[in-house]
Amino acid sequence: MSRPSLDQIAEAFVLALPHAKDLGMRLVALNDGHAELAMPWDEDLVGDPSSGVIHGGAVSALIDTTCGAAVMSHPENGGDTATLNLRIDYMRPARPGETLLARATCFHVTQTVAFVRADAVDGDPEHPVATASAAFTFQRRITG
């Protein structure tokens, strides 16, 4: 059987998560413990109507989903995952009208826990909108 393409994986991934789909998220990259998801700016996601800045909660949802995707794509992953803890620091407001891109790396796993770092950027990738660190449940794949 041929390996499914990234597009196919991406579509299946987002369709499988109703909340990610609802917020308009799109999988951009996924391999070996690294994931990138994009979320276009939308009027409904605004937290401050006077400026049009996206609500922190929507940024959290994007980062959480991206971290989960990074864990799922880790080569040693052998099961499902769930967030244990998520810490987000908000550096600056996201620019109104710009797509947000979250980038997550699962940088360490044990038998039972996966550790992830992530950030979210808009048109100015040098200055992240938010950075995050998270712990997820993990089931290491049984090999051999």
Partner: peptide
Amino acid sequence: RLIGNPVLPALHGGAIAA
């Protein structure tokens, strides 16, 4: 639309954090 894991099913962690 708040579901994150349709198998369990469970609320999305991001929706909970929000």
